[in-house]
Nucleic acid binder design. Structure first.
Length: 207
DNA sequence: TTTACGATCTAT
DNA sequence: TAGATCGTAAAT
């Protein structure tokens, strides 16, 4: 199903990530997030993202500067920034922009493609359309946690990467304010830096 | 050392 | 609508 050579052609290169984080967030829609562990593959199409733009963005974790937690965001683009929150959840981001500029894209939802049986085991008692429609749900389905913090997403060696997926028309993309940042002051609170794929004939969105 | 809170999810 | 549950950063 996956051969190494074909895989290498599909994997997004570092220069995809080494751009303005808002553009990266929008362009990640339709791309395929792939997890490989124990010789098994789980993948899904990215259908919702959010951009967090550097130390000046008061909604971004990097607003506190470089700490153990935020260090990965200050590193090179194309790495995974995985953080723990609310005492029980892991969230997955991709680092974007120049080194020393702390920006990242939170992956908020994917549409499962491969490894449905594996996801089903990871999300017992949950309806299929609720498997991966939230940032902490998809990390659970794909077995992403602190071990993946800092890994290189531009190579299959890491067991976690993003590859070219489906084409998404601009007219099928919507945007709006980011979620869960009610205490963040303006103008950051209202920046329309959340992107998602509208329901359309190419992608079956969640109910 | 202590405190306050969080880029969430689930059941009620 | 509230409770779960603990790492992180700042205050004490």
């Amino acid at each position: 199903m996956y051969n190494t050579k074909r895989m290498a052609e599909l994997i997004l290169p570092q220069n995809f990530y080494n751009r303005n984080v808002v553009l990266v967030a929008k362009d990640l829609l339709g791309m395929r997030l792939v997890r490989n562990f124990d010789n098994l593959y789980v993948s899904g199409i990215i259908c919702e993202t959010e951009a967090y733009d550097g130390t000046l963005d008061l909604a971004c974790h990097a607003r506190v500067g470089k700490t153990n937690r935020t260090a990965v965001m200050f590193g090179p683009a194309g790495r995974a920034y995985v953080y723990f929150t609310y005492g029980m959840h892991w969230c997955f981001n991709v680092v974007a922009g120049e080194e020393n500029y702390a920006a990242a894209v939170l992956i908020r939802a994917i549409l499962p493609e491969k490894g449905l049986d594996i996801i089903a085991n990871r999300r017992p008692g949950v309806r299929q359309n609720q498997w991966t429609n939230g940032p902490a749900k998809l990390t659970k389905a794909l077995m992403i946690d602190k071990l993946q913090n800092g890994v290189d997403l531009t190579t299959s060696q890491s067991g976690l990467w993003i590859e070219n997926g489906i084409k998404v028309c601009t007219s099928d993309i919507s945007c709006g304010p980011r979620v869960g940042i009610e205490r963040t002051p303006e103008p950051w609170r209202s920046k329309p830096w959340r992107f998602w794929i509208l329901e359309n004939k190419n992608v079956n969105s969640y109910e």
